[in-house]
Amino acid sequence: MNLFRTTLAACAAIIIGTAAIPAAQAAGGGTKPPEYPWSFDGPFGTFDRAQLQRGYKVFREVCSACHAMGLVRFRNLSQKGGPEFTEAQVRALAADFKIMDGPNEQGEMFERPGRPSDAFPKPFPNEQAARAANGGAYPPDMSVLAKARNYERGFPLFLFDILTQYQEGGPDYIKAVMTGYEDPPAGTTLQPGQNWNKYMPGNIIAMPNVLNDGQIEYPKGPDGKPSAPETAKQYAADVTAFLVWAAEPHMEQRKRIGFQVIVFLTLFAGLLYFTKKRIWSRLPEHAPGTH
């Protein structure tokens, strides 16, 4: 096995040596986001309903001014495993939106109040309009944003992630970016419409800092105090959780069924193992007493 061991050792040395090359170099700058604790982490993670409802409020009052969420429909807000607003609440908040419908019998488009079956309306009619209104930048659709963003974990972290089930790269990154605005380092001049963000790859981001302490009013608890701190950090966490739900609305069902399936298959595998042993014990070399 000498040749094999030498090869293996050489390969290990190469991998460890080159893995030390900072991954950020490839990504073109941008600090790795910290790992935040989320209620939806791990095999039994679930969404925090109150957090999703607060997150919706942040989305509605801040994000939706520029970002579309065209794949999410109002009715989703009342479905199981989501923010679980009541159906009456969903009808009311859908009716808050003006939806373009038509054409009517006169052949004209018209606006009507939203219905639960409608998708969130887009803030701009098309990409060109969105760019024109945002200094050339296109605010991406947020429907699957939490799954569409990630950052490189690197060796050997990506292997451990299989066991720890870490898959919150998207939300970690989104929350970090929303709270990662800083003054640019000395000597860097930003063009108009550019902002400096610690976590953005390349550090330059078109979106300005939009979350400030006290900006959004959270529902009050029985003691008259807000149900969660009205801070930029909390807003960022809440809206990120909301985006994770929006990107994967059946996550709770998935993890719940997953647990049942894996328990079932493990038990079945156990039974099959003993059945197999019993059948193979008919062969002389597997008969009891020979080993």
Binding site: P43, I162, Q165, Q167, G258, F259, I262, L265
Partner: peptide, 8 residues
């Protein structure tokens, strides 16, 4: 199944 349900 582990990957389908937990790490899709």
């Amino acid at each position: 199944s582990y990957f389908i349900f937990y790490m899709p």
